[in-house]
């Protein structure tokens, strides 16, 4: 299954310039694991604000790359946090799985 929406990705390439797409992918692959780590830490600490903000950032970046499913999962977590609800079951791990697939696909899309 393809994780990345090709039209969105092409638009991104056009906007940043093809030569910068690698820089963008690398920044995302670098930063996203930190955001997920922050989500785990803030979940354990019941720090709703930090959790919400990291979910928001991840959602924003996933949308940028056209990673539709990952974006939807991150948005779900962000909205739960907005409601002050951190009862998220295994959704964070589901999201992490989605990220790993996205990351694999993005690595292949470097030019």
């Amino acid at each position: 299954m393809l994780e990345i929406d090709k039209a969105a990705f092409e638009e991104l390439k056009q906007m940043s310039g093809a030569s910068f797409i690698n820089e963008l992918i690398d920044a995302f692959l670098d930063d996203a694991p930190n955001m997920i780590q922050q989500l785990r830490v803030s979940l354990a600490a019941k720090d709703v604000e930090t959790f919400r903000r990291n979910a928001h950032s991840l959602k924003s970046n996933a949308n940028t790359f056209g990673a539709v499913q990952l974006a939807a999962l991150a948005k779900e977590l962000e909205f739960k946090a907005r409601e002050n609800d951190l009862e998220i079951g295994n959704r964070l791990e589901v999201m992490n799985e989605a990220f790993l697939k996205v990351a694999e696909e993005l690595k292949g899309m470097r030019t």
């Binding site: 991104l12 906007m15 940043s16 310039g17 910068f20 820089e23 963008l24 920044a27 995302f28 670098d30 930063d31 950032s57 924003s60 970046n61 940028t64």
Partner: peptide, 16 residues
Amino acid sequence: DDNRVNRILLARGLEQ
């Protein structure tokens, strides 16, 4: 922007 991907994206687009 606190998000690096967003900063790079906007910056490169506008620099062009």
